[in-house]
Simulated scan of single mutants.
Amino acid sequence: MLRSMYSGISGLRNFQTKLDVIGNNIANVNTYGFKKGRTIFKDLISQTVAGASAPGDARGGVNPKQVGLGSQIAAIDTLHTGGSTQFTGNTLDLAVAGDGFFQVMQGNETMYTRAGNFYMDSSGDIVDGDGRYVQGESGKITIPTTASSMSVGQDGTVYFVDLPQGGAAKIAAAEVALKGPAKTFEPFETALKDAEIVLKTNKADFKAAEVAWKKAAAGDQSIPAVKDATDAALLVKDAEAAKITAAEVKVVEAQLAYDGAKPAYDKAKNDFDKVMSDNKATLQEAGQIQMAKFSNPGGLEKTGGNLFRETANSGEVLTGVALQQGFGKVESGFLEMSNVDLAEEFTEMIVAQRGFQANTRIITTSDEILQELVNLKR
Rank of each mutant, 00 (worst) to 15 (best):
P263I: 11
T347L: 11
G287M: 09
G260C: 06
M337D: 15
A343S: 12
Q284V: 06
K267M: 04
E336I: 08
E316F: 05
Q324P: 07
L342R: 09
V275R: 02
Y265S: 04
Y265V: 05
G326T: 13
A261R: 05
K269A: 14
Q290M: 09
A268L: 10
G298E: 02
L342C: 07
E331L: 12
E301I: 06
Q324M: 07
G260V: 06
Y258V: 06
L318R: 10
G299W: 13
M337V: 13
T319H: 01
N339S: 13
F327V: 03
F346H: 11
G326P: 14
L318H: 05
P297W: 07
T303V: 15
T347V: 13
Q325F: 01
N279H: 01
L318P: 00
Q288H: 04
A268I: 12
D278E: 15
A261Y: 07
L335C: 09
E344P: 00
Y258K: 04
Y258E: 07
F334V: 05
K280L: 12
N339D: 12
A286G: 13
S314Y: 09
G328A: 11
A268W: 09
E253V: 00
M337P: 02
M337W: 05
F308A: 02
V252K: 07
G333F: 11
L283Y: 00
T319R: 04
G304R: 03
A312R: 07
K269N: 13
G287I: 07
F327L: 03
L300W: 08
F294T: 03
Q325G: 08
V330C: 06
G305S: 10
L318C: 00
S295N: 13
G305F: 04
Y258L: 03
D273W: 06
E253T: 08
E344W: 01
Y258D: 05
V340A: 04
A312P: 03
E310H: 12
K280I: 13
K267S: 11
K262F: 11
V275I: 14
S338I: 04
K262R: 10
E285R: 06
K329W: 05
P297M: 10
P297A: 10
L300G: 05
T282M: 10
D273M: 07
A281N: 09
A292K: 06
E336Q: 12
D266Q: 15
A257F: 00
L300Y: 11
Y258W: 08
T303W: 01
D271Y: 02
L307Y: 14
T319F: 05
E285W: 01
N296W: 14
K262N: 11
L300S: 08
D341C: 01
S338T: 09
N306S: 15
A264Y: 09
K262W: 04
D266G: 13
V340P: 03
E301H: 07
F272V: 02
N313H: 08
A281S: 15
Q255H: 05
M337I: 12
M337E: 15
F334C: 01
S277M: 02
E344D: 11
L342W: 04
L323N: 14
L318I: 11
E301K: 15
E331V: 11
E348I: 04
F327Y: 08
E336V: 08
Q288A: 04
G328R: 09
A312M: 06
L335R: 06
L318K: 12
V275W: 02
K269Q: 13
Q290T: 00
E348V: 02
Q255I: 01
